[in-house]
Amino acid sequence: MEEGIRVNREVKVAIIVMEGTNNEEEAYQSFKHSEATPEIIHLKKLEDRKKKLSSYDIVCFPGGFSAGDYVRAGAVMAARIKSNLMRDLEEFVESGRPVIGSCNGFQTLVELGLVPNVDGDGRLEAALAPNMSNRFEARTVYLKMNRGNSLFLNEFKEGEVIKLPIAHSEGRFITRDKEVLGKIIKNRMNVVSYVDGSGKESGYPWNPNGSEHNIAGITNKNGNVLGLMPHPERVFYKYTESDWTRENNGTGMGNRFFTSAVQFVREKF
């Protein structure tokens, strides 16, 4: 019986938003349809201590244009968190529970220094710069999964090529210096890479923004924080994949990210 209780344990997800965040609905639905209990929480409520991060199992930073992204993408959200909530968030990360940020959420994680964080000191090591094409790009890309130790990628085969939508104008992942990039590669933290239709790493348009080393997504060393530009939450079911009328991809590319994290929490916590 004890097994059963563990399986049905409620997994609480904090989806953190501020004005301009706008991908929370699909993030909410994705966790809901992964049998978790998501909650959309305005940053204000965390700042006012009306809500506490420690009472959640997973933290999600959804995409959008937090604060309008009129300065560097994700910078305002990160600054607000740093000035007030950083200790709570660091404790959450150190506890080993899952944190995911896609698109603007990825930008926020980078600004917060939570990824890549190769040196473990939380300093800013990378940035998501404007796309090389200098324009907003909305399309589907091919991605190679280099699982590493990311807890979000447990349900993917090593080297599997999948397809996810992207929609951003600032997605070019660049590192502070060669050293940081070297450590990312050495530690196998570049867990999601842009590839072409045949699974090879190629340039534009397959790499839609000109990211260094074709990096689309990155984990921290511990494998519990994932930041990525593509949007798994938009293709939870295969019927929103852009080529679903041609190919039967089974259940949907996106849902594996979420069910994997929810399962991880059920097993480990």
Partner: peptide, 25 residues
């Protein structure tokens, strides 16, 4: 023009402005 517009936000777009093999829609 159209690929400068986000057509997949909200994760509910079953058919969008383009369809077909990814990269050759």
């Amino acid at each position: 023009v159209v690929r400068q517009y986000d057509h997949t936000v909200r994760g509910s777009t079953v058919i969008g402005p383009f369809a077909g093999i990814v990269g050759n829609e």
